[in-house]
């Protein structure tokens, strides 16, 4: 079977190198032929190989698992690797780097650094004084509780919720939906012995759970469909009683 010729599409990408004295932010249009099942991963790789070897962007798994490739596509933050060109009937995609993160170059932003800081702020690890002998049977966990913890542990820290967040625009130090979800995750986990008071110390202010304006673009755009709205509301109810 042969593949019929695909339509011509236009990818318009923002280019800017903050490290260069002469670079100014500008868009560059790339035209290419669409192939069946083409994603932005395939399109951008092709552009780099054939048209512009200088175009910077980030991909790792190209399967929607690692969270590396968040960018703003036609105004909406999304994972580029899961963006199918076929879903854009007008055949034009405008790409911009995600806001809220430090720009490295073109479409590449430093989400890693931001997520590291966030993880330290919410102390994103199990807090316990118990020492478990690993040659002995593991602690039993209710299967439903394990499932609930897993649900919230599915976050891939892609930063799309932060890039979508209205509160983040107004409060630069806002911990973001991702940070609040982390707290919600450890709050469910029976291995973590932290109390509501401990979590209050971490996120009980306007840069934390009380800052959220409930605009909920985070949940709209979350590629993992995490229940951010519910979980933020739950944490707020729980922690407001400690105020």
């Amino acid at each position: 079977m042969s593949t019929p010729k695909g339509r011509e599409i236009t990818i318009s990408a923002l280019k800017f190198d903050p490290r260069s004295a002469v670079s100014k932010p500008h868009f560059v249009d790339y035209k290419l032929e669409e192939t069946p099942g083409m994603t932005l991963f395939i399109a951008l790789t092709k552009i780099r190989e054939e048209q512009d070897a200088d175009l910077s962007f980030d991909f790792v798994c190209r399967a929607g698992i690692c969270g590396s490739c968040g960018m703003v596509v036609n105004g909406k933050p999304t994972l580029a690797c899961r963006t199918l060109i076929a879903n854009y009937p007008e055949g034009k995609l405008t790409l911009m780097p995600m806001p809220a993160f430090e720009l490295i170059k073109d479409l590449s932003v430093n989400t890693g650094k931001w997520m590291d800081d966030m993880s330290r702020r919410v102390e994103s690890w199990i807090h316990t004084n118990e020492v478990h002998d690993i040659s002995k049977l593991e602690e039993k966990v209710d299967p439903d509780i394990a499932d609930q913890t897993f649900e919230l542990d599915r976050c891939i820290e892609c930063g799309i919720c932060v890039a979508s967040c209205g509160t983040k625009l107004m409060r630069p130090d806002f911990i973001g939906p991702v940070g609040l979800n982390r707290v919600a995750r450890f709050e469910v986990d029976p291995h973590d012995n932290r109390t509501a008071e401990d979590y209050y110390e971490l996120i009980g202010d306007d840069d934390g759970v009380f800052g959220c304006m409930s605009l909920m673009a985070c949940e709209d755009h979350c590629p993992k469909h995490l229940p951010l709205q519910n979980k933020i509301a739950y944490l707020r109810r729980k922690l407001v009683s400690l105020r």
């Binding site: 690890w125 199990i126 478990h132 690993i134 040659s135 966990v141 299967p143 394990a146 542990d153």
Partner: peptide
């Protein structure tokens, strides 16, 4: 390997459990 999996459980990996 069994020690590794039990260590990870203690570090919060939410292993699916027997029901």
């Amino acid at each position: 390997a069994p020690k590794a999996i039990r260590e990870l459980a203690g570090w919060g990996v939410p292993w699916t459990r027997v029901r």
